[in-house]
């Protein structure tokens, strides 16, 4: 599930690291959709997801001089976004004001199933179910599941990016998959 055009992004990141604002603007344009999808899945809150995605890019711009390019720019950017979400979740858990938005998904696209109302409904329900499921996972499990399943990162890379032992990362992922399997059985996604 590697991002298409990663090589282009890496080149742009190199230029942006040298202070090229135009290159960074291109990165923002190419990656905003993916990063905001990540923050949305992790938080389940549309407005928070937008803010966190924007913050992630601003942090990336400020920290680019320190980016050594060892792990790839996209992985690094996802790490920034995931960490922003984890911080948000830990702050929110103390305030206890985060709730999953079940119906407020108007600005989300559903173009893949456009033209087929039945499939649109199923897709929308599944999308919301998955969002709901993600909110049941503890923060670190959520981050690991997101980076592994949706961003296709290897366990080694996730371990480096989140600064956790690889074994711990694998345990988090497996626990998330077990929960997902149980949820899928309960909701009837699979028999």
């Amino acid at each position: 599930m590697a991002t298409a055009g990663n090589d282009g992004i890496e080149q742009l990141a190199k230029k942006a690291g040298q202070g090229d604002r135009t290159a960074f603007s291109q990165i923002v344009r190419q990656m905003m959709s993916k990063v905001s999808a990540l923050t949305y899945r992790m938080t389940g809150d549309r407005e928070a997801a937008k803010d966190l995605a924007q913050d992630s890019f601003v942090s990336a711009w400020e920290n680019l001089p320190n980016f050594r390019g060892e792990s790839g720019f996209t992985g690094w950017l996802y790490k920034i976004a995931a960490n922003k979400c984890l911080n948000y979740l830990s702050r929110a858990s103390t305030k206890q004001n985060v709730s999953f938005e079940e119906s407020n998904t108007d600005s989300l696209t559903s173009d893949r199933s456009a033209g087929n109302p039945e499939k649109t409904l199923v897709t929308k329900t599944l999308r919301e179910d998955i969002l709901e499921f993600m909110q049941t996972l503890p923060g670190m499990q959520r981050a690991v599941f997101e980076l592994r399943f949706y961003q296709g990162m290897s366990f080694g890379e996730i371990s480096r990016q989140l600064n956790k032992a690889e074994g711990t990362v694998k345990t988090h992922y497996r626990q998330a998959v077990i929960k997902l399997r149980k949820t899928a059985m309960a909701k009837g996604w699979i028999s």
Partner: peptide, 17 residues
């Protein structure tokens, strides 16, 4: 189950956003 999972585009915001 993995095939059923909504992909990344399902969580993308619309162009205006």
């Amino acid at each position: 189950l993995a095939d059923e999972m909504p992909d990344d585009t399902q969580y993308s915001f619309d162009d205006a956003a």
